[in-house]
Design a protein around this nucleic acid. Structure first.
Length: 298
RNA sequence: GGUCUCUUGGCCGAGUGGUUAGGCAAUGGUCUGCAAAACCAUCUACGCCGGUUCGAAUCCGGCAGAGACCU
């Protein structure tokens, strides 16, 4: 039987170093499921594994995209599953690590094949900017009452996506939503890393200071001309853009990075805690984790 | 010592004699192709004491604290 060890948890908890320890233990590769570490131009601010860490285990999906390339959970599912298939040819174990819940789910459960069209999306976003969300809400209520009744229509991104699908296909968004969990031909073992909230927040605050020492500001400066790209709508970058635009002092910007990273960590926990199959550990309990994995691998 | 101003929930901040301003944070939550994104819910305060009033955080008096100016 082939196995996939999945490691999740809030940002800054220690997923990277744990995954490397596990990779060494099982002599296997690591697939990253991090929606920002794909981008080769963003390193310090995304807390990518550093060179020495990358040398300790084979990593995939790190720095494999450029910030102007469009990427999504759907394409990641295809890429990651195909990579996994390749790895499983020669190894019974592989690791998936990442803080992007949707991307992790795409690999573990798959997502429905629903069409998309970025141009229509841009157009719809323009409509919202000009006329507000109301007309689109009304449009969706007509086009897809089923989905309208179920969704949070106050969320512009969801509204746009639903209408996007209706407009390009002429069918309802809900008709594409099967919610089927794809049967994977490998055994999935999920472990979560967590600690007391104060500890999580404290680690985050310290890591942001560290990023600044490592030259985050220079990295951000080098990307300033790209700041409108979606990839740069990222904690650690947008706040420093505001500093470079003289909208914030450096101290304010750094404090905001810490705050927004803490907010993000909380959202990650909300997402990951829902999965009852995840076995949770404190980050320093490496032996317990390895023992658990040894019993679960088959 | 005197004159004047200010005092709002963890922070910022508006305001009216009688429905919870709002923002941020915090806490909980949502999530199927932008997800480090986007969004939802909960948090009912007005320095202290007394008075006026049917009713004051909003008016009056005193006290305390902060600030400005004067001697």
């Amino acid at each position: 039987m082939k196995n996939l060890i999945v490691i999740v948890g809030p940002t800054g908890i220690g997923k990277t170093s744990l995954s490397i320890e596990i990779a060494k233990h099982f002599k296997c590769d690591i697939i990253s499921a991090d929606s920002r570490q794909f981008f080769k131009e963003m390193s310090i601010g995304t807390a990518k594994p550093i060179a020495t860490e990358l040398a300790e285990a084979q990593h995939h999906f790190i720095s494999n995209k450029s910030i102007d390339e469009k990427y999504s959970a759907g394409t990641f599912e295809i890429d990651a599953i195909s990579k996994l298939k390749e790895l499983h040819k020669t190894n019974d174990v592989a690791i998936l690590v990442g803080g992007s819940g949707l991307y992790v789910n795409a690999v573990c459960e798959g997502i429905d094949d629903i069409p998309f069209d970025l141009e229509i999306r841009v157009q719809l976003n323009k409509e919202i900017e000009e006329f507000g969300a109301k007309p689109l809400r009304e449009e969706l209520r007509q086009l897809d009452p089923e989905h309208y009744a179920r969704m949070n229509t106050k969320n512009p991104q969801r509204l746009v996506r639903a209408i996007e699908v209706c407009r390009i296909t002429g069918k309802t968004y809900s008709s594409f939503r099967k919610n089927t969990v794809k049967k994977r031909d490998f055994n999935i073992i999920k472990i979560g890393l967590n600690a007391d909230r104060e500890v999580v927040y404290d680690r985050i605050n310290k890591r942001v200071d560290l990023m600044m020492e490592e030259g985050l500001l220079d990295e951000v400066k080098s990307l300033e001309k790209n700041k409108d790209l979606n990839a740069l709508n990222t904690v650690g970058y947008k706040e420093l853009f505001a500093y470079l635009d003289n909208e914030k002092t450096l101290e304010e910007a750094v404090n905001l990075i810490k705050q927004h990273t803490r907010n993000f960590a909380k959202r990650q926990l909300t997402w990951f805690k829902k999965d009852q199959t995840t076995k949770w550990f404190e980050p320093n309990k490496l032996n317990d984790i390895l023992n658990y994995l040894d019993t679960e691998i088959n």
